[in-house]
């Protein structure tokens, strides 16, 4: 996919993200897609820190830090206020981590989605509470090591299917995104911007400290997640599925083996994960046919 990526930067240098942080790149791409007529609401997450402590600021668009569980409700309030004040152009973006989306933020997100509030909700998902030190969330995959699911008793349940959850709300646009495919991500963000109602974009974010991988592997791991079908890239527009980046025959082990959080997995575990990924991929393929 070829796309003109705007030269404008809405993310200043000097942010306080970790080296190799995928969440910083994701924000940079997303804002290039949305442009300057954007207001961002950020509930508690890594980005509460990355954005800079008072009196410093990282973003060159209006940003409001809000309470952990309120990303969607805050964005809905901002949108209503802008509209009643006569500004119908500005996009309101709620930007939350997996905790602020899958867990504590789910109720407000569900409320906004059911009302079809005109916001874009982006979940940058690093699959655990990374900002507080790698505790498991409901976005943490099966058998993953985290600081609250030690390697000898890793997480026992699968990752929550957030896309299916959002599909159940009948919102007009849902997509997955990856920092390894910025053109795909920016195209999706641009499409979301033009649609009225609640738009949900789920971005998988490699996290070097939390996933236990070297910081230079962020993009590689993000790409392997897509190619191995662990995290397929697709969109659902008015209920219609479309795969936007075709995966190849990469095995999930290629993705898993680069990450310390999966070091304790044995061959059987990896086979089970491969089988689950294959099953989920055929479901998505079937829906996209």
């Amino acid at each position: 996919m070829s796309i003109e990526i705007p030269r404008e930067e809405y993310l200043f240098s000097g942010h306080t993200g970790c080296p190799g942080c995928g969440a910083v790149l994701a924000m940079r791409h997303v804002l290039k897609g949305l442009g300057d007529k954007t207001v961002v609401a950020i509930p508690a997450c890594c980005w509460s820190i990355i954005a800079g402590a008072f009196p410093y600021a990282t973003l060159n668009v209006p940003l409001m830090h809000c309470a952990f569980e309120t990303g969607a409700a805050t964005a809905a309030g901002i949108k209503a206020a802008l509209e009643i004040r006569g500004d119908t152009e500005t996009t309101v973006l709620a930007w939350a981590g997996d905790g602020g989306t899958f867990d504590i933020g789910l109720q407000a997100l569900s409320g906004a989605a059911e009302r079809n509030d005109d916001i874009i909700f982006i979940c940058y998902d690093n699959e655990a509470y990374m900002n507080t030190g790698i505790q498991r969330s409901s976005a943490t995959p099966w058998k993953t090591w985290t600081s609250t699911t030690p390697a000898n008793t890793p997480k026992e349940t699968p990752k929550k299917d957030i896309v299916a959850t959002m599909m159940a709300h009948h919102i007009p646009y849902i997509a997955t995104g990856s920092v390894a495919y910025p053109a795909d991500l920016i195209a999706k963000v641009r499409k979301a911007k033009e649609i009225r109602g609640t738009k949900f974009i789920h971005i998988l974010i490699p996290c070097p400290p939390g996933w236990r991988h070297p910081s230079e592997l962020t993009i590689k791991i993000a790409r392997l997640a897509v190619l191995s079908r662990v995290f397929p890239l697709y969109e659902i527009e008015d209920g219609n599925h479309r795969v936007t980046v075709e995966p190849d025959d990469t095995r999930v082990s290629e993705y898993l083996k680069l990450q310390g959080r999966f070091r304790h997995l044995d061959e059987t575990d990896i086979e089970v994960i491969q089988a689950n990924v294959d099953r989920e991929w055929s479901r998505i393929e079937c829906l996209s046919a």
């Binding site: 207001v39 609401a41 409001m64 809000c66 309470a67 569980e69 309120t70 969607a72 409700a73 805050t74 964005a75 809905a76 309030g77 901002i78 209503a80 206020a81 802008l82 004040r85 109720q107 407000a108 569900s110 409320g111 059911e114």
Partner: peptide, 18 residues
């Protein structure tokens, strides 16, 4: 909204936007 918590969250967002 779906709760009073979100009622105040949305009010905060709306007020912050003027």
């Amino acid at each position: 909204v779906e709760s009073e918590h979100s009622a105040m969250a949305a009010s905060v967002g709306a007020s912050a936007a003027g």
